[in-house]
Amino acid sequence: MLEINNLHARVEEKEILKGLNLSIKPGEVHAIMGPNGSGKSTLSNVIAGREGYEVTEGSVLFDGKNLLDLEPEIRACEGIFLGFQYPVEIPGVSNMTLLKAAINARRKHQGETEIAPNDFLAWVRDRAKLVKIDPKMLSRGVNEGFSGGEKKRNEILQMLVLQPRLMILDETDSGLDIDALKIVADGINALRGPTRATVLVTHYQRLLDYVQPDYVHVLARGRIVKSGGPELAKELEEKGYGWLEAA
């Protein structure tokens, strides 16, 4: 599904990713862990297509298509979802407005007609229940005045509503209390299935207690320095990253 080969990327002249390789198949959950500044967020942003991240070498293929040629909105319509580390506020634009525009953009991309208002409402409300978001919050501005935990739950809601095929969650677990963490994990698990894949970008083992990854990778100095199963995360929790960074 996603094939990353020898990816080099820089931000403002500074090379952050230095030859990263990663292969993700449908149905898999990958955790990418690593110390601060190792390039985790850069990887997320490069996949989603954020401006200011320049790929200097390598390739990223999604279903065989060169992802780097596509505008961010096209990548999203193709089924890629980035859960933001710091979701922005968009005052005056309601969550419903954003969700509807997003759903219809994707439907248009796939040659479908716009969603019927009633179907849309029911679809969103059902998913809001899963992440314990009050329907009243849906008519408020996007993330406007939301707490840190509410913003992260809102990201998961958007993900549930849009049903992407590849989910990249950039430190979605950071700053969450245990209850919110469970809700977020439930949301992620709800979308787990043979046709979808998930990339969890995280600092901590904590989230992985609730979302069991198939693979764990350690990102350091711009490349993946070690890969393993879930047991690797536990090892990292005990030993830290020092022993890998030195290697």
Binding site: A48, G49, R50, E51, E71, P72, E73, R75, A76, C77, F81, L82, F84, P87, V88, I90, P91, G92, V93, T97, L98, A101, A102, A105, R106, H109, G141, V142, Q158, L162
Partner: peptide, 26 residues
């Protein structure tokens, strides 16, 4: 903000529609 625009685009919404949505919110 570029952040707001990118946020909308990362949800599949084209740039022009995103700008118009943000302005309408304003």
């Amino acid at each position: 903000a570029d952040d707001q625009l990118f946020y909308c685009r990362a949800r599949g919404i084209g740039e022009e529609e995103a700008v118009s949505m943000i302005v309408n919110g304003f």
